[in-house]
Design a protein around this nucleic acid. Structure first.
Lengths: 106, 106
DNA sequence: CAGACCGTTCGAAAATTATGGAACCATTGT
DNA sequence: ACAATGGTTCCATAATTTTCGAACGGTCTG
């Protein structure tokens, strides 16, 4: 079957809180993850490839912080998961923020 | 004499760290301070008027966090102090960031 | 079904940040 | 010189965040 459960909660765009987003981006490890996700446009990246050589529980926690702030999407896919930037939605809610944080080029 | 000592350290623009700036802005009280400072252009505001009804040591700590991140300037002036946004420098170092955070107008 | 995989959640310990009273330090006014 | 003012710094305490091992839960393969 397709991924039935295992869905994680993602906040609606209108519910995103600026300070939460800023906080999520204020950690170097997490910002690195965001940059990595921003490389390819709309790239869906398996969790594994993210964050380098850190324990998986640590990575998972960082992804959770980013997800709960509304910065990334985390969807089940087979037995792994794909992570991607919620770029359009962020641009919609906080115009220019992501661009500025990523250093203008997309 | 004019304010001789009492000068606090302010990081150079080129030394500003994005994650530190984001962190400084990620606290609601501090972001409120920044918004307050952004109201008038280049406004110099005495510390007193900042942050509402909080103990002065708490306010001072928030201002310190903002100053050390390079977001604000804090200069002695008589027996008080003036605080202001380092807007131009921030725009220089992180183009678009402040504008995005403040919600374009500002 | 058993086992391997991927990743989340739990739980506990370490580190960082927040808060506010008290002490302190220049500066101004009397 | 003394007192009042404005604000920082010191210190201790509380609260949050970070980190990571271990347990757990789906999913795919044999």
């Amino acid at each position: 079957m397709a991924g039935s459960s295992r869905e994680l909660a993602h906040p609606d765009v209108e519910d995103l809180v600026l300070t939460d987003v800023l906080f999520a981006l204020s950690d170097p490890s997490r910002l690195a993850i965001v940059r990595r996700l921003a490389e390819g446009s709309l790239e869906m990246v398996p969790c594994q490839e993210i964050g380098g050589e850190i324990p998986k529980s640590t990575r998972s926690h960082h992804l959770k912080t980013l997800r709960e702030a509304g910065v990334i999407r985390n969807v089940p896919h087979g037995r792994q998961r794909y992570v991607s930037l919620r770029r359009d939605e962020l641009d919609d809610r906080f115009p220019g923020l992501l661009t500025a944080v990523l250093g203008q080029e997309g």
